[in-house]
Nucleic acid binder design. Structure first.
Lengths: 124, 124
DNA sequence: CGGAATCCCGTATGATACTG
DNA sequence: CAGTATCATACGGGATTCCG
């Protein structure tokens, strides 16, 4: 995203495909990022996992105020599919499942902290 | 957000109020940030304004593939209310309105570029 | 215990028309 | 030109119940 003058003005976030997501008419990785971490619960889930993971499903649910099974379950699936969350199942009875963050989140954390800092300045 | 051990584990994004948004049970500036720049069109609008602004309403609309008046108008209002977009109206006939980004966006840009770069790595 | 299935609702988004 | 008004729809999100 942002500012680069060549023959055609295009943003700097390294647009790639022409699917209309970016105003430069191309696919923007930034839009991808917003899809990956967007939504009502994903940030909170990542935060909880980063602080307390590995952690079991019901413990995680208890840590996130107000989340339902539907939302937690679907968000975890998407995060796992995007490679941000790791799911480990122990086949004992009763079943034990532990969730944790992956290496991808390590690089994400400082960026999110900058975003938070930015928000504090613009919305004090 | 993320990792800090005191008496109670809390994240590092400087949580403040107890409204249940953060897993640490408090209001997180990061969540605020996601509300400000989240949604289907805001990033694209900011990007277009940053590249081509100041720019008139209909020109802006033309640059953003597929956006409707309803969405562009409401998104611009929210962005203006949050201090990211400036609206300047010239009372001539026909009316001329120009939109541009504010100083707040200047600090946001490098963060968004990092996010885009991160996304390229995790979702190549 | 760790979810899945089902049903339901509100809001975000969209299409179309219209106006100061 | 720069939007608003109105109506329609889709999807995110939620409550409840049930299952291996």
């Amino acid at each position: 995203m942002i500012i680069e003058e060549t023959d055609v003005k295009k943003c700097d976030a390294d647009c790639q495909n022409d699917n209309g997501i970016c105003p430069c008419g191309q696919k923007c990785p930034l839009s991808t990022a917003m899809e990956i971490i967007g939504g009502k619960w994903k940030i909170q889930i990542l935060c909880a996992l980063q602080i307390d993971g590995p952690i079991r499903y019901n413990e995680l649910k208890a840590k996130i105020n107000g989340i339902t099974n539907t939302m937690l379950s679907s968000a975890l699936k998407k995060l796992e599919a995007d490679g941000l969350v790791r799911r480990k199942q122990y086949n004992v009875m009763p079943v034990r499942v532990e969730y944790s963050t992956t290496e991808a989140v390590v690089n994400l954390v400082p960026i999110l902290m900058q975003l938070g800092k930015w928000a504090k300045e613009v919305a004090p």
